[in-house]
Design a protein around this nucleic acid. Structure first.
Length: 757
DNA sequence: TCCGATCTATTTTTT
DNA sequence: ATAGATCGGA
């Protein structure tokens, strides 16, 4: 046995060394899935397999990078860097840059992100004079995206009566036309959306046998991570690629499937047995990550789901801490209690900030957490949310980059042409768009040569257009001669974008200028990295075009930070695949988690439950659940109810009972084997309550040094209560107080302003 | 065409 | 709450 394989358990070992033929690995949470994948790659290389023959597909760039780093650690640099490891989207984008001409795409095609996509769909809806309320852009986009990920093109869509009937009964019969126009417009812009990267790769392999053959020869060993999250398109592409050698290894966990909402299909796991009847199955069931308490609680929760593949996750780890429970009166208080708990654990357990993660269902929940952490000076880092790349000023500058790289990129052109203002307004643009449509050419064609298409323009406008076109073309020339950073800086300055924001002379304007500078620094770093990497990776030049390819598929979670000792804040989706000693799962309230839009069908509810399972199994040492009894949502104060998921946590594993104090829980009727009733958003939850009571600004705490058990105290939010105990001293002094209103709470006296009554 | 005031949708999760 | 969209007036 090779040395490096010694640390593996039997199942892991088998999953690693069975390199030939189809293999499926069902890997429970924390069972060493990534380990198996990395060792498998290392093992292949060790056996002398050419790294260029190995393909490893992941869902996030982060997972890909991590895998690469770990392989390099195992067997050293050099060979490892030539393995194709990346997300489905990035790998297929790379293939399409090489092969896109078969489908009529240039290699410099633009990738539209969801913002660009949405905008384009919105434009089309307006152009078609449809009511944007009926045809809500987000809805239409979701519909088109769903179609594309099932490999249903515009024609198939229009010819599929089941689909069109559904659209008709939804009073949206024209989605098929929007879809058709949308695809034409994308094509005319030499652009692909995220789904096209998969769709077109599939078409490429389906229609061009020689291309398929080439990649089948290339990728002799294929590995797919998070197989439970693949959609139909991904499934078929992988199947085609693997058809020759059948050296395919998929790793997944049905209990962690949380992307059905975007077309992921758990059936792909089941299909695997049919597609490769002689496949080998390995089950990784031993959890190395979490304590017994966490594993047991998680097992019980997932047990409430009907649809699942039987498996038993177990662990030899210690029993561990019970699961914490935080009950807060408001979202802000929830933030404070969580921040306090982190502070306390840091002090008592000597932990780093980076040992903590706060996980939530929606990005909007981060704010209360941020504020609370900031108040007590705990550094944190937010993953996801409003991405750096979706800020206005960044989009503005990127639009120029895109336009310079691909003149036909219509979205980029529309954004750039009058930002900053160049006197090319709405009227002119509308006229140009009509001409472009009539002649079926890209918008750039018309802007660049309006005379050619007989566009009616006054001479002033014509000059402005000509100047703009000349400028863009001059950038394109520069781009060929200079490296990325120089061109980027030239563009930022010559276009007047930086000047525009600077002249706003407002704090926002200034921060926009700073963001632009940050982006330029990013470009600089990128091209320097390009120069360094040149000898190792011949394909990498560090050009602006390459930078843009990177950016299009990048998410915020992929960015690195210099200072890494920070508390992590992210959605549960973003946390998949990660682990932390201490995990706080916040906002466990009905209509938030599970989400109000996911409780009408069993399938949706079960996905929410898997999400909860994923969240809980991120924890190594201790998990803490929290919920608030009220929360601001959509700027509205709402009373909330604890999540049904809290009831599914084994009471015996909780630090404090769920139902304590005076609060009487309304009995919720839930039978495990009936389909949940139609959602009845309880009035109670949505009723705005009078929020006008002004808080007593003068409320200041008494000196709490004299605080002792038995004393009556008053709290600014909780009102009257009785002190049960006081522990700790100095800044960490805590008191347990029983309040009439909210039951027993533990408060850090430094923050809780208590008045002795 | 530009600017400001008013209105409005947004919040599920991501490549 | 808040950013973006929209509309009317300059």
């Amino acid at each position: 046995m090779e040395d490096y394989l010694k640390g593996l358990n039997k199942e892991q070992y088998n999953a690693v060394v069975n390199t030939d033929g189809p293999v499926m690995v069902i890997a429970g949470a924390g069972s060493g899935k990534t380990r198996v994948l990395t060792f498998r790659v290392a093992h292949l290389l060790q056996k002398g397999i050419d790294p260029f023959n190995i393909l490893a597909l992941t869902f996030t760039n982060k997972a890909a990078r991590e895998m690469k780093e770990r392989v390099i650690k195992l067997i050293g640099d050099g060979e490892a860097r030539n393995v194709w490891m990346g997300t489905f989207h990035s790998v297929f984008a790379k293939i399409l840059r090489f092969e896109g001409q078969h489908l009529g795409y240039p290699s410099n095609f633009t990738i539209y992100d969801s913002d660009d996509t949405k905008k384009l769909i919105k434009n089309i809806i307006t152009d078609m004079k449809l009511d944007p309320k009926t045809y809500a852009p987000n809805f239409v986009r979701a519909r088109i995206s769903m179609a594309k990920s099932h490999l249903i093109g515009p024609e198939e869509y229009a010819n599929n009566t089941e689909i069109t009937e559904a659209d008709k009964s939804g009073a949206k019969p024209l989605i098929k036309d929007i879809y058709k126009t949308y695809n034409l417009r994308l094509k005319r812009s030499d652009a692909m959306d995220f789904d096209d990267l998969l769709f077109n790769t599939y078409i490429l392999f389906r229609d061009f046998a020689e291309v398929l053959y080439k990649y089948q020869q290339k990728f002799k060993y294929i590995m797919v991570d998070e197989y439970q999250d693949t959609n139909h398109a991904q499934y078929l592409i992988v199947k085609k690629l693997a058809a020759n050698t059948e050296n395919i290894c998929v790793v997944g966990d049905d209990a962690q499937s949380i992307y059905a909402f975007r077309g992921a299909n758990i059936q792909n796991i089941l299909n695997f047995r049919k597609d490769y009847p002689d496949y080998k199955l390995f089950k990784l069931e031993q959890n190395y990550r979490s304590t017994k308490v966490i594993v047991e609680a998680a097992n019980k929760i997932i047990g409430f789901n009907k649809d699942q593949i039987k498996k038993t996750v177990w662990t030899e780890n210690d029993e561990g801490n019970k699961i914490g429970l935080i009950r807060a009166t408001s979202d802000n208080e929830e933030g404070k209690l969580v921040a306090d708990a982190i502070f306390t654990a840091k002090m008592t357990e000597q932990r780093h900030n980076s040992d903590f993660a706060i996980l939530y269902r929606t990005n909007a929940q981060s704010r209360a957490m941020e504020e609370a952490l900031r108040k007590i000076n705990i550094p944190y880092r937010i993953y996801g949310g409003q991405s750096f790349y979706s800020r206005k000023e960044i989009k503005d500058l990127l639009a120029y980059f895109r336009l310079v790289i691909n003149h036909n990129d219509e979205d980029a052109l529309q954004r750039a042409i009058n930002t900053p203002a160049r006197g090319i307004g709405k009227t002119t643009m509308e006229r140009l768009i009509v001409v472009a449509d009539e002649n079926n050419v890209s918008l750039w064609e018309v802007v660049n040569a309006p005379g050619k298409y007989g566009t009616q323009l006054n001479s002033g406008t014509a000059t402005k257009l000509a100047n703009f076109a000349t400028m863009i073309k001059s950038f394109a020339v520069e781009m060929k001669k200079k490296e990325a950073y120089e061109v980027a800086q030239l563009i930022a300055n010559t276009t007047g974008l930086v000047r525009m924001y600077r002249e706003e002379d407002t704090p926002e304007g200034l921060s926009r200028v700073e963001n632009i500078e940050e982006l330029l620094n990013g470009v600089k770093e990128f091209s320097e990295r390009g120069a360094e990497a040149n000898e190792g990776d011949l394909e990498f030049q560090g050009t602006l075009a390459e930078f843009m390819q990177d950016v299009a598929l990048l998410t915020d979670a992929d960015q690195d930070d210099d200072d890494n000792d920070k508390v992590s804040l992210m959605t549960i989706h973003a946390a998949k695949g990660l682990e932390f000693p201490y995990v706080f799962i916040v906002g466990l309230e009905e209509n938030l988690f599970p989400s109000i839009q996911s409780i009408s069908t069993r399938a949706e509810l079960e996905e929410e439950r898997r999400l909860f399972y994923v969240a809980l199994t991120r924890a190594e040492t201790k998990a803490t659940l929290s919920f608030a009894e009220s929360r601001y949502r959509w700027g509205q104060f709402t009373i909330t109810e604890p999540s049904r998921f809290l009831d599914e946590v084994d009471e015996a594993l909780l630090e404090t009972p769920l139902r304590s104090g005076f609060k009487q829980q309304t009995e919720r009727i839930r039978t495990e084997n009936t389909i949940p009733k139609t959602p009845e958003p309880s009035r109670r939850n949505l009723k705005p309550i009078d929020n006008s009571q002004v808080q007593d600004k003068a409320f200041t705490g008494d000196d709490t040094g004299a605080l002792a058990p038995g004393m009556d105290v008053e709290h600014i939010k909780f009102g009257r209560g009785k002190v049960i105990s006081v522990e700790g001293n100095g800044p960490n002094q805590k008191a347990t107080v029983h309040f009439n209103s909210v039951g027993t709470k533990s408060l850090l006296l430094r923050f809780a302003k208590l008045k002795i009554v």
